[in-house]
C-alpha cells in the first residue's frame, strides 16, 4: 500500500533519523512511502495554547494536503492525537469538517500502524541493550497505545525491556507548558528521569520525540549516561 508520512517540524529539524528510520521500516515491509514536504506542522502548539483559530489555519493545509492519502503514518502519539481527536473538535461546524473527520479516521501513530493495522510485531531488528519505555501521554490516553510499542520491543533480538516505577506518569513536557511553567515541568521530568535511572537501563525509549527532547535535556544537564532514543530508531536496527 502507499503510506503517506507526516513528519512534524521538530522531528524534521531536530530528530530526522526518526523519520528516516520510519521510511526504512515501511519500505522493508514492502510499502511505498509518500511524503508531502509542504506539510510541516499539525497545529498542536497553537491549539494547546488556546489559539484554536490559528491552529485551524495550520490544520486546513494538513487536511487538504492529505485528502487523497490512503493511510497516514506519524511517528508521534502527540501529533497523532491532535489529528485524530482534536481536529474533529476544531473543525466542528466548519466547511472542512467532513474532510477533517475522514483524515482522523485514516491517521495512525507509527507503532499503532505496525501492530494494529499491519499486524506486524517482528521486524527482524537486533539491538543489544537494556531499555526502559516511556509512554507519551497523548499516545497513551488519547490513542490508547500502551501495549503496541512494548509488543514491538519484545521481539527485538538481544534487547531487554525493564519497566520503570510509575510507568504511566507524565514526563512533564506538555508543549508550551514546558516553558510557561518550567519549574513544574522540570520537577515532573526529574521524577521521570529518576524512575528511568533506577532501572539501570542504557536507553530510555519512547514513541514520542517531544517527551524525549525534554527528558534528554534534563539528563544531559545532569551528565547522566542514560540516552534517549525513539522506538523507530531501535526497530530500524536490522
Amino acid at each position: 500500500m502507499t503510506i503517506s508520512l507526516f513528519i512534524p517540524c521538530f522531528i524534521d529539524q531536530l530528530f530526522p533519523s526518526v523519520g528516516i528510520s520510519v521510511v526504512r521500516i515501511l519500505e522493508k515491509l514492502g510499502h511505498k512511502v509518500d511524503f508531502d514536504e509542504s506539510l510541516v506542522c499539525c497545529g498542536q502548539p497553537a491549539f494547546n495554547t488556546g489559539c484554536w483559530n490559528e491552529a485551524r489555519d495550520v490544520a486546513i493545509r494538513v487536511v487538504d494536503g492529505l485528502k487523497n492519502a490512503e493511510v497516514v503514518v506519524i511517528p508521534s502519539g502527540s501529533c497523532g492525537a491532535m489529528i485524530r481527536v482534536f481536529y474533529p473538535e476544531i473543525f466542528k461546524g466548519h466547511p472542512k469538517q467532513e474532510a477533517a473527520l475522514s483524515l482522523a479516521h485514516k491517521i495512525y501513530e507509527f507503532s499503532e500502524f505496525l501492530v494494529d493495522r499491519l499486524g506486524v510485531v517482528d521486524l527482524g531488528s537486533r539491538f543489544p541493550a537494556k531499555v526502559t519505555f516511556h509512554n507519551g501521554c497523548h499516545g497513551l490516553r488519547e490513542l490508547r497505545l500502551k501495549q503496541q510499542p512494548r509488543q514491538l520491543l519484545r521481539q527485538v533480538k538481544e534487547l531487554t525491556l525493564v519497566e520503570m516505577d510509575d510507568q504511566t506518569s507524565c514526563c512533564g513536557f506538555g508543549g508550551t507548558f514546558a516553558v510557561k511553567f518550567p519549574m513544574i515541568s522540570t520537577a515532573m521530568g526529574e521524577a521521570k528521569c529518576a524512575s528511568a535511572l533506577e532501572t539501570g537501563a542504557d536507553f530510555l525509549v519512547s514513541n514520542d520525540s517531544s517527551c524525549l527532547m525534554h527528558l534528554q535535556g534534563l539528563l544531559s544537564r545532569k551528565k547522566e549516561k542514560l540516552k534517549s532514543i525513539h522506538l523507530a530508531e531501535i526497530l530500524a536496527s536490522f
Binding site: G19, G217, L218, R221
Partner: peptide, 22 residues
Amino acid sequence: LRAWTASREAPVIAKESFRQYW
C-alpha cells in the same frame, strides 16, 4: 530561552533535516 535552558540542555538542530534527506 532560559525558561527551557535553566534546567535542560537545548536540543541541537540536525546537520541534515528529514526534508533534505528526502
